[in-house]
Design a protein around this nucleic acid. Sequence first.
DNA 1: ACAAAAGTGTTGCTGTTACACCCATGG
DNA 2: CCATGGGTGTAACAGCAACACTTTTGT
Lengths: 219, 219
Amino acid sequence: MENSYYNIVETLLLIYAADEGKLKIYLKKKQEEPYKGYWTLPSAPLDNVTTLEENVNIIYKNMTGLEESTVFESKSFSNLDRDPSGRIIGMSFIAVTDKGLTDMKQSTSDKEWFEVDELPKLGFDHASIINTVTEDVKKKIISNYDDMLLAFFPSDFTLPELQNFYENVLGKPIDRRNFHKKFVNQELVIDTGFKTSKGSGRPGTLYRFNEDKMKGKRI
Amino acid sequence: MENSYYNIVETLLLIYAADEGKLKIYLKKKQEEPYKGYWTLPSAPLDNVTTLEENVNIIYKNMTGLEESTVFESKSFSNLDRDPSGRIIGMSFIAVTDKGLTDMKQSTSDKEWFEVDELPKLGFDHASIINTVTEDVKKKIISNYDDMLLAFFPSDFTLPELQNFYENVLGKPIDRRNFHKKFVNQELVIDTGFKTSKGSGRPGTLYRFNEDKMKGKRI
DNA sequence: ACAAAAGTGTTGCTGTTACACCCATGG
DNA sequence: CCATGGGTGTAACAGCAACACTTTTGT
């Protein structure tokens, strides 16, 4: 099959979530050779009667047990030697989900959440792909491109929680008071009326994003 | 070749430039069936020993006669019926160039620049692809994502010229005085010391982008 | 009462918006 | 001298940055 116009294409899915202020990614432990025992991105080869989006949805459902997700196309990888078995074009997609929901649906030991800067031993070129795509995700979170921040916080959250995540992605601290005021004064968030009560300290107010004000907004 | 894991992949190149305040795209007139006489995006099928980037560079050089360009990956198109000859996966790339340079190198009649909202009759699904990718480009220009604005103005320009383009992309007018001050006060542009002298009216000052200040800057 | 975490107020600075007038050139 | 297009000043407002203290909970 050398030097032809037939190509093997795979879709790679990078499933991200915000968890305790950290940006995490959901990986799968490989059960067969090659790279048996290594962690990898969930992926699926694309056949010629399936669209990329359909292929990605299959991976997503398979990996999380969930139906719906917010998916964004990211970069492609076409180096000739990225897979030992021959040239495979990798097309990466970003899914943003809720770690909690995923945990409820999945209890296998061959899938796990990892912080993006504490990755395990990865097979193929997946470490490099994760780093490249993670930079893309961070950039999109920070500029709220594609309303990425909204995708990470679909339901209730406290402002310190949001700030923690944001600081983690941004790589530097932000003044707590200014952060709070920004979101409340500009009505980017709505008070749900509920409070958290985890551990010691004053309980935090639970907010939801005010989608109308957040959509297209530059944060 | 039905229902196999072998896919035909093509790269599609969307070459954009800023010209007289308008966002334009460079298209090619098709000389053979199918869609003979229609305009199309320059494209090339990908063989299995070439990377996507290499393939795009070949198209770019072929189309413009130029060697270097700023290329960004954009969206992919994998609908089963997007090409009458069978399923072809289209991967689109954005090149930003200088219309003037292109004109110098090319004088054939089968290539032409079109305003993105005055497109000619297009073959395949290329009209739809252009619209989708153009939205992406506009969004990137407006948020200066990937330093897109910089890519459009590599050399000298006047502020009214820049503003014209920006307004065209944004779809609404901006106050001329505020626009001027913004770029000058924040030192996003550097006075080259030269002036334009086209037609009547006071000559405009020619500026260059101050790349250090522009890089990563949100406009 | 104390530790831990969340909430709040003020001030100065920076950038944005909204406004009208003057300047340099070609005809 | 006038039409065309480019450049400039000012004042009100909004958002951002930098600062310390108070409130609510668990132990």
